[in-house]
Design a protein around this nucleic acid. Structure first.
Length: 645
RNA sequence: GCCGGCAUAGCUCAGAGGUAGAGCAGCGGUCUUGUAAACCGCAGGUCGUCGGUUCGAUUCCGACUGCCGGCUCCA
């Protein structure tokens, strides 16, 4: 009981150390440094954790104070703006009940309300205006620690029944704080700014209905999203950034680059135009080449199979609501949502020896899954797609080597596309699953052993596995910093059992093989969508649907342009000739917008010397060279699947 | 599936209760073009679909379809 005498050491960014008593607040530290800092501070950080200026410090360590100039201030500002918004809503509609705000304030804030109708865009304007009034009041954010009972009483008195419910979710023993600013009181762990005037610019973004606690069976609340910054200019630049991101949107680029389209007659299923199909097929060629070198054999399997098969595989029971069905000759068929059952059928066509294993089947077959209407989006979530799918049938002893080989291939592929910082996740048995506990334990252990022995870092996602087995998923970050799940390696003891798959072991007895499901790019559609946004449509040369365009300076050089095109075409280059009656600048601009890697200008000088003037889409001018000089470099880049030009 | 928004020419968008306009693209001409948009002209639309209100609807109302932003879901 000597808390009053205990001291903490705080290390400031300049390296200096300060000794303060336990229970000192960051604000007091700021005041000690200088009155100006105390006034301007919006928040603090201890050992990398953001803390409220009024929160008594319990531990020392690396210590920082933030003012509006620091990027971190945004977290405090948006979290505080969130309360101001809730205050505004309550002032406008006193009967509204509040639920909770957002956890991640790195970009946005949000608040959920129990409100009898949806908020309209006009409501948002009104709320934003009211927020302006509240900000003008420049009220102070007050932090109060209360007991659980006190908190329950306060919110019950305020009629905030959702809040009282939420209070029950706070683990016993955790301290409970409430924040007050203006006329608003909320259960909140903070941290917040000191005064509302530190919130310089606010914008409400959109409203939407959300399920309470994210559960579809719960009532729907109304959520409002917004963002806030210390300065108006920061808000403007954020909105500008959002606007610019739209230019990279694969749905936008898909139209601009003439890659694919969608049609009302086939919702959520893309129609690939020639250029999109070129990319698609080039990707398939790449994967095919890579995996065939590693012992995979490609198979082609039916699109539509008797529903009996899907009963046998377990898909019907687990996945029926996401399948397409068709009745013909009074017989029920299902369109395949996965390839694995058909691969089991091939496996079973003859007696397998342990000497045959592993059997590795790959399949680029088209799959159909009925995705609920509200969830589809561009190429990233479609109802018809193909995967770079494969299934390996092997013995238990072979699992580790197979999984490791898959992982190394997957990493090689991601490297080709320039995806970095790949995160690996191990997902374990979900609630809805096939097979016994022992099967699952064995499968999960096998994957852990493979990952562990290869010294691969991974995180465990409990209950996120496939219904037939645990899996290792690969998350990549694209150029825009977004995370996507691409590859997956899934262990399956269940399907072999259901299909009664066997092999004859060295002991002459029958054994059951293990099945490994594998995808690397995942859905090709989705991968193309991600790649479009990752590259902004400027595909690496080997994938570019048009690799070079020949541009005669005028009609007079059209004929020479044609001979150049023929030379390149014969060499296997995807080349076009733009001999339209337009100025060179016009056609350059167009090729540039189409992100064609090479523009080959031919005029009098080039014709004379049998050359082409090489311009890159980067704007670089390579000068004049003969086709014979130009080709080898291009070929080398294509063959090595380089990202360079 | 749930909440909200949107739907006008190939694309981007304007418009009003009296059956529609611009820019770009397209087509025709002039120009014969040298590294990110030459000039002139022409054509192009059942205003997503169906129903209702109205003398009259593309405009107002409703349903449906599709798309967009969220929620949930994604074996």
């Amino acid at each position: 009981m000597s808390q009053a005498t205990e001291n903490l050491i705080l290390t400031l960014p300049d390296g200096s150390a300060r000794e303060v008593a336990v229970g000192t607040t960051p604000l007091e530290v700021a005041a000690d440094i200088g009155p100006r800092l105390a006034k301007d501070a919006v928040g603090a950080e201890v050992e990398g954790k953001l803390v409220d200026l009024r929160q008594p410090l319990a531990e020392g360590g690396a210590f920082r104070l933030f003012t509006a100039k620091d990027a971190e201030a945004g977290i405090f500002i948006r979290h505080s703006a969130e309360h101001v918004m809730a205050d505004a809503v309550k002032r406008l509609w006193p009967e509204v009940e509040i639920d909770v705000g957002r956890i991640d304030h790195s970009e946005k804030f949000q608040y959920d309300f129990r409100f009898p109708r949806a908020f309209t865009p006009e409501d948002l304007e009104q709320i934003e205006a009211k927020m302006g009034e509240i900000l003008a009041e420049d009220s102070t954010f007050e932090r109060i620690e209360v007991s659980r009972e006190e908190a329950a009483r306060i919110f019950a008195e305020m009629g905030e029944t959702l809040k009282v419910e939420r209070l029950k979710d706070i683990p016993e023993g955790e301290s409970i704080t409430i924040y007050r600013d203006g006329s608003f009181t909320d259960l909140c762990r903070g941290p917040h700014v000191q005064r509302s005037s530190q919130i310089g610019a606010v914008k409400l973004l959109e409203a939407s209905g959300v399920y309470w606690k994210g559960d579809e069976t719960n009532e729907m609340l109304q959520r409002i999203y917004g963002t806030a910054f210390a300065k108006k200019e920061e808000l403007a630049s954020y909105l500008e950034q959002v606007e610019q991101a739209k230019a990279r949107d694969h749905r936008r680029l898909g139209v601009d680059l003439d890659l694919f389209s969608f049609n009302e007659h086939a919702p959520a299923t893309p129609l690939f135009h020639p250029k999109g199909a070129e990319i698609y097929n080039t990707l398939v060629d790449y994967i095919r080449e890579l995996q065939n070198r590693r012992g995979f054999e490609e198979v082609i399997t039916p699109q539509i199979l008797d529903v009996d098969l899907w009963h046998l595989s377990g898909h019907y029971d687990n996945y029926r609501e996401a399948m397409f069905f068709s009745e013909v000759d009074e017989r029920e068929f299902a369109v395949k949502p996965m390839n694995c059952p058909t691969h089991c059928l091939i496996y079973k066509t003859r007696l397998r020896s342990y000497r045959d294993l592993p059997v590795r089947y790959s399949d680029f077959g088209r799959l159909h899954r009925y995705e609920r209407s509200g969830v589809t989006s561009g190429l990233t979530r479609v109802r018809s797609f193909a995967q770079d799918d494969a299934h390996v049938f092997c013995t238990e002893e072979q699992i580790e080597a197979e999984v490791l080989a898959m992982i190394s291939t997957i990493m090689e592929i991601y490297d080709t596309f320039g995806f970095e910082s790949i995160e690996i996740e191990l997902s374990t048995r979900p609630a809805k699953s096939l097979g016994t506990a022992e099967m699952w334990a064995k499968a999960e252990e096998a994957l852990k052993a493979a990952l562990g022995n290869a010294d691969i870092d991974y995180t465990i996602h409990p209950g996120e596995g496939a219904f037939y087995g645990p899996k290792v998923d690969f998350q990549v970050n694209d150029a825009l910093g977004r995370q996507w799940q691409l590859g997956t390696v899934q262990l399956d003891y269940s399907m072999p059992e259901r299909f009664e798959l066997e092999y004859i072991g060295a002991d002459g007895a029958e054994h059951q093989p293990v099945m490994i499901h594998r995808a690397m790019l995942g859905s090709l559609e989705r991968f193309i969508g991600i790649l479009i946004e990752h590259t902004g449509g400027a595909f690496p040369l080997w994938l570019a649907p048009v690799q070079a365009v020949v541009l005669p300076v005028s009609e007079k050089f059209l004929e020479y342009g044609e001979t150049v095109r023929e030379q390149l075409r014969d060499a296997g280059v995807r080349v076009q000739l733009d001999g339209r009656n337009e100025k060179l600048g016009y056609r350059i601009r167009e090729a540039q917008l189409q992100k064609v890697p090479y523009m080959l200008v031919v005029g009098a000088r080039e014709q004379e010397a049998g050359q082409v003037a090489v311009r890159l889409r980067t704007g670089e001018d390579r000068g004049a060279q003969t086709v014979a000089e130009f080709l080898p470099g291009l070929r080398e880049l294509v063959e090595s699947r380089s990202r360079e030009l």
